[in-house]
Design a protein around this nucleic acid. Structure first.
Lengths: 142, 142
DNA sequence: CTCCTTATTGATAATGAGTCTCAGAATTTA
DNA sequence: TAAATTCTGAGACTCATTATCAATAAGGAG
């Protein structure tokens, strides 16, 4: 599942060594398509039998984010989530404020309007956040 | 500038008392159209001659946000900003990643696409965040 | 106006995600 | 193999925000 070449490339680019701990973090990140926070990832790594310190988890995540192997999400609740879907197309997020479920959405029209707004101002777009906080169907029928 | 009736209504609704400290916080929030963090607001209140503790500033801000007298912004840098523009129409934000300047934008097409996405999923929209992180023209010519 | 009950305040401790430090361990290079 | 360099883990630290709690103030009742 995990593509070690991607990790190797990123580490090489950063002038960092390929270590078993960094591989464990990458393994765990590739293991699911969830949107987990650092603590959850840390706990899941331990669960899977590996032993990597919290500090190393954070440090490795930083490298992976910087090299776009994973994406960092800020849902505004004080802890960052990480998702591994690098290969998939760009998408934004729908977040259920009740159960915390996260889904993805993508709309070409919105994307092009964004570009138009930026262009009109004469700015350069670096990145964007577009999150729709909702109550999902399951939660609304409860 | 500050509309005390709005504050009074909100406090009444929450079953809270009208105090000079809460009025000072409201005064300061109404004094500018900036997007300040709690510490800046706290310092500006002291600057203006009033004396309100940090704890009370935070507590009052919470009440105001809850009652939609001010809006809370999360720019992903670890501290919340607050803006007072309640009377004005809905808008989202353009944030310069270099100088931190914040501008506002609004696009009806994007808003309607959002609604369409929500409707398609059968969800209920609670709120949304749409932030475009950019490099502004001033910063890009430096 | 005064007493009494209840809410508020401010100082400070606590929290929690994330970062930093540094000595010991591991790896790479000479 | 030795020397140099990078990594790691444990725990200290940071910083925004929240909680605690004794002292103070507000809002009635009489």
């Amino acid at each position: 599942m995990a593509n070690y070449d991607l990790l190797k490339q990123a580490l090489k680019k950063e002038g960092l060594r390929y270590t078993i701990q960094r591989q464990s973090v990458w393994d765990e990140l590739c293991a699911t398509d969830d949107h987990r926070d650092a603590e959850e990832i840390y706990m899941d790594i331990r669960q899977s039998g590996s032993d990597v310190s919290r500090a190393t988890v954070y440090r490795t995540i930083d490298v992976l984010v910087k090299n776009k192997l994973i994406r960092k999400l800020d849902l505004g609740d004080g802890r960052a989530r990480y998702e591994h879907k690098i290969d998939t197309a760009h998408h934004d997020h729908l977040i259920c404020v009740q159960c915390g479920k996260i889904e993805e959405f993508m709309d070409d029209l919105i994307e092009s309007r964004q570009d138009a707004i930026i262009k009109k101002h004469g700015y350069k777009l670096i990145r964007h956040i577009h999150q729709l906080f909702i109550i999902c169907d399951e939660c609304s029928t409860k």
